[in-house]
């Protein structure tokens, strides 16, 4: 968090955000992230719908993928996957 932050005179009034949530990359929060075994994935997309951060995207081929810029590593997708094709792996 080394960015230069504005002084109070420059900030928008009403305490509104001057940055989009996409600018806040939260991918470095967790110690683990999910990995998908595409051999077993059934493209049900439940991981996409369950992800509280919207960090599981649906690709054009119908499979999902993890956006590691935003994934906080909560593991909900792994818990909910009906075919158990996802697992949490330690970041290295």
């Amino acid at each position: 968090m080394t960015e230069d932050k504005p002084g109070w005179r420059e900030m928008p009034e009403g305490a509104i955000s001057y940055k989009c949530t996409l600018d806040y990359e939260t991918g470095d929060w967790g110690v683990e992230y999910p990995e998908i075994d595409y051999e077993r994935c059934s493209k049900c997309m439940l991981c996409h719908f369950y992800c509280p951060e919207g960090a599981v995207r649906v690709r054009s081929d119908g499979y999902t993928e993890i956006d590691r810029r935003y994934c906080k590593g909560c593991g909900i997708c792994v818990e909910e996957c009906p075919v158990k094709c996802m697992k949490m792996v330690r970041k290295v």
Partner: peptide, 8 residues
């Protein structure tokens, strides 16, 4: 209303 500079 006042004008503010939001994220968009």
């Amino acid at each position: 209303f006042i004008k503010v500079k939001g994220h968009l």
